[in-house]
Design a protein around this nucleic acid. Sequence first.
DNA 1: TTACCATACACAATCGATTGACTCAAAGCA
DNA 2: TGCTTTGAGTCAATCGATTGTGTATGGTAA
Lengths: 351, 351
Amino acid sequence: MPTRVSQRPTQRQIAAQVGVSVTTVSRILNPEETHPERWASPETVEAIRKAASDLGYRRNALAVSLRTSRSQTVGVLLPMIGDYVLATIFAGIDEVARENGVMAITASTLDEPALRAERTFKMLDHLVDGMIFADAHLDEHFLDGIEAQRVPFTLVHRRHSRHISVTADDRAAGRMAAEHLISLGRTRLAMVTGRRYMSTGTDRVEGFVSAALEAGLPEPTIYDNGFTVRAGRDAAVAMLARPPYPDGLFAFHDLAILGAASVFRHHGLRVPDDIATVGFYDSPMAWASDMTSIGVNLQDMGRRSLELLLDRLSGKPIESEVFPVTLTVRHSTDPSRPVGSPMEAPIARAL
Amino acid sequence: MPTRVSQRPTQRQIAAQVGVSVTTVSRILNPEETHPERWASPETVEAIRKAASDLGYRRNALAVSLRTSRSQTVGVLLPMIGDYVLATIFAGIDEVARENGVMAITASTLDEPALRAERTFKMLDHLVDGMIFADAHLDEHFLDGIEAQRVPFTLVHRRHSRHISVTADDRAAGRMAAEHLISLGRTRLAMVTGRRYMSTGTDRVEGFVSAALEAGLPEPTIYDNGFTVRAGRDAAVAMLARPPYPDGLFAFHDLAILGAASVFRHHGLRVPDDIATVGFYDSPMAWASDMTSIGVNLQDMGRRSLELLLDRLSGKPIESEVFPVTLTVRHSTDPSRPVGSPMEAPIARAL
DNA sequence: TTACCATACACAATCGATTGACTCAAAGCA
DNA sequence: TGCTTTGAGTCAATCGATTGTGTATGGTAA
C-alpha cells in the first residue's frame, strides 16, 4: 500500500486494482494507441478505464516525455509579452497549440541576448519539441547555433535571412505609409522606428524611405526610440527641439503615436493639420484615438508560425510566409473623417 | 557507443568519458549539492566539470523532476495575457521566478470555467510545484477542489473568501474615485465595471456606491461591459441612448475610458466639462490621454504573489496582502491641468 | 494428433537523473 | 599489529510511463 495518500494516482495503482500489469494499463490508456482493444479483452479495457476514472488518473506528462522524448510542448520567445502586438501573436499560437494538444510555454527576452540565451536553454532543458522566436535579430548567429543543435523552430514577426519566418509585409507597409502621407501633400516626413537589428524596423524604413525619395522628397528623419508610448513621447520631444517640424509622422506602433500626440497637443500642434500621423497594428487604441494605422492579422500570423512548426515536426517541408498589410484611414491623416465613434457604428475587431 | 550523434549529452556520457560512475557525476554536477568535493577528489571534480562543459552538458529538467518530484516550475493562470494589467502582473511574477531559478509558465483562461480547468490540469500534469491564479471567481468551488488535491497556490489581482491573495485595495479605490468626482461637484455618477464574479469589480463597486450614497447622491448607474476599449465604447453608447447623461464616469480600466471617450467626442460631449472620467491602473495610455486614473503597483503585486507562493512551498505561514492605490489627477477631471505632455517633463514609469 | 494462429496478456529494459546504503584502500591511532 | 576512521567513490533501486519481445491458452485446419 502506498504510504502517501491523495497523491496523483499512477498506472501502477490502476494495474494493482484491476489485477493486470502496467503494460496493459499503459496500452489501454495511451491516447496515441489507435487500437486499444487489440491489447485486452473488452472487459479488461472497461475495468481499466473505470479504475482510471475512479481514481482520477492523469498521465504524468514528465514521465511520458522522458520515455518518448517528445514533450508535446513548444517554447515561444517574445521580446515583451505585455505588448499588444506580441500578446496577440501569442494568442494565435496558443490557439493552434490547444487545437493540437500541445502546450505553448512562453517567456520574454526584452531583446537582451543574454536573457534570450538563458531562456532558450531553459526551455530546451524541458525538452520542448520546437521553438518559435518572435525576437529574431537580423543576421545574428544565435539562431544558427540553435539550428546546429537540431532544434526545430520557426520565426514570427521578425525575419532572418537564413531561417523560415512568418512576417507582415513590412516593406510594403513602409511604402504604403509614405505614399499615403505624400498623397496628402506632406513633404517633411519622419518616422519613429525600432533599433536596427529588427527586420520589422529596417524593412519598414526601407519601404518608407524609398517611396519618399522616389517622390522627390528629402530623406525622412528617423527617431529610433522604439515601440512604446514613452518612445513616441521622447521622439516627439526630440522633433520639437529641432525645427522645422515634420508634417507627416509614421510610427511603428500605435502606442508611440499616442505618446507623440500627447506632446504635440501640449504644444498646440494640431493633428492632422500641422502634422498627420500614421500608426502601426491598427489596434483598438488606434480607432479609439481616430488614428490612421496600418494593420496586419497578428493573430493569424501567430497561428501560421506554429502551424509551420508543427508541419516541420512531422517532416513536411515548409516555407516562409508574408502577410499582407492594410491601411485604415482615420482622422489623424484625413480631417474630413469624423472624430470619435458614432453610436450606430459596428465594431469589427475585439479587445 | 551511442548511435545518435549531436543529441543532448547525458551524465552517462560524461561518466564514460571521465571513467567514473554516473552517481559521482550526478553528485558533482547537482547544483543542490552543497559539498560536491565531499564525493570526489579535486582532480575528479575538475575532470567531470571539464567534460560537462566540453560536451555542453545540461541537466534534463524532466528527468530531474520525475525523480525528485520537484519541477522548479510554477503555473500562472491569467484571464487574458494580452491585457496590460495581467501582463504587468506577470512581468513581476516572472522577475521573481527568475531570481529564484524557477520557471513560470502561463496560460490564458478567458474567464471560461472549462478552459480554466483544462489548463490547470494540463499544468498539474507537468508537475508544477505550485500555481498562481489571477482569475479567481468570487466564492467559486474550483479553487477548493485544487486545494483538496494539495496543490499549493496563491491568488493575485482578484481575491477569494477562502484563499490567500495579493490584491489592490479595490474598495478604497472605488471610494477614492467617487469622492474625487463628488469633490468636483459631479452628481450623476456611472461606472463601467466587470462581471459580478470578480472581486475587483464588486469591491470597487461597493466602495464607489457607498461613497456616493453617503454623499447623498442617487445610486450610480452600472454598465458591466468589462475592461476593454470596446467595452467602454459599448457602455458609452448605452449611456447616450438613455438621458440624462452621467457627468462623472469611473471605469475599471483605462482602455474602457478610451473607448467611451471616443463616443463622447463623436457626439460633441466635452471631457471634463460635460463628463469627467476616471480610469484604472494609471497605464501609459492614461497619461498619454490626459486621463485621471487610479494606480497600483501591479508589478509588485505580481512579485508578492510568487514570493508568497515560494514561502508556502518552503513551509512558511503566509497571509493575504492588500496593496494601496493612488489617484493621479489629470485633465480628464480637472480642466485646469495642462493638456498633453510638455517637452520638459520627466516621465516616471516605463512602457 | 499436430502444427498453426489468434487472443490476451506479462516481462523487463529503458528514458536521465537522484540517493540511501555499501565497498575498498589507505591512513591514523593505541 | 590490530582496529577505526576517512576519503573516494560505486551499487542498485527509483520516479512513471512506453514498448519490443515473450508466452500461455484455446480454437481451428489438415
